[in-house]
Amino acid sequence: MGPVRTHAAAGDRPGTVGVAPARSQVGEGAIRMEDESTSDEVLLERLQQRDVRALEHLYDRHGRLAYGLAYRMLDDAASAEDVVQEAFLNIWRQAPSYDQRRGTVRTWLLSIVHHRAIDWLRSRANRRGDVHLDLVERSLAVPDTWHAVSANVERDAIRRAMAALPPEQQRTVELAYFAGYSQPEIATAMGVPLSTVKGRMRMAMQKLRVLLEGTGTWATR
């Protein structure tokens, strides 16, 4: 906060509070310069120390992808904005109890965006509760896919891999991941038996894994 002058309230008497203009707590230019050289791991440590600037850095780094994912799933700017805000706040609130061995911050963040967006799509009445770590655990217990290569390489790799799938398998994965359809819902949407959906989904995921393994984006540690 800026310069402060106070009127101390005497006893139980009410005090008076002047209304100050808003001001940024930190210089944004400095944030972005520092951001370039600060790893996600360091940012998470600072989140754990309740450093709001670390959240700003994280947002500047991953906000566009998080918003892009939410927008792709929801096709609605206002809802996507809410989902992204909730996801970052979720990270902020749960960071102190987060163990980095569970996965990267980015994977964690995008998992929360995904869960939030699916909740939104399903219009769950109580969707506003924080996404508990346990719910995203399956997405976190993975090797660090984000560090070894740049996001651009990874993006190219997953797009090429998806393009290599038969259209019906692509559609199956897209309906599940981006639309949040259950397997029975996919069966209805595509007019095929449930067993066909299960088979397509398994085949698609296995092929994607093999294709990604061959690209070098499948980092291990």
């Binding site: 566009r64 918003y67 892009g68 700017a77 992204v84 996965g103 997405s139 990874e154 894994r209 990604l212």
Partner: peptide
């Protein structure tokens, strides 16, 4: 599952990055 989850961790990259408001 680790293999499938790693595939899923790549799927957000299919979405185009967008500037939030």
């Amino acid at each position: 599952l680790v293999g499938f989850a790693t595939v899923v961790a790549h799927l957000p990259l299919l979405a185009e990055e967008r500037d939030p408001p």
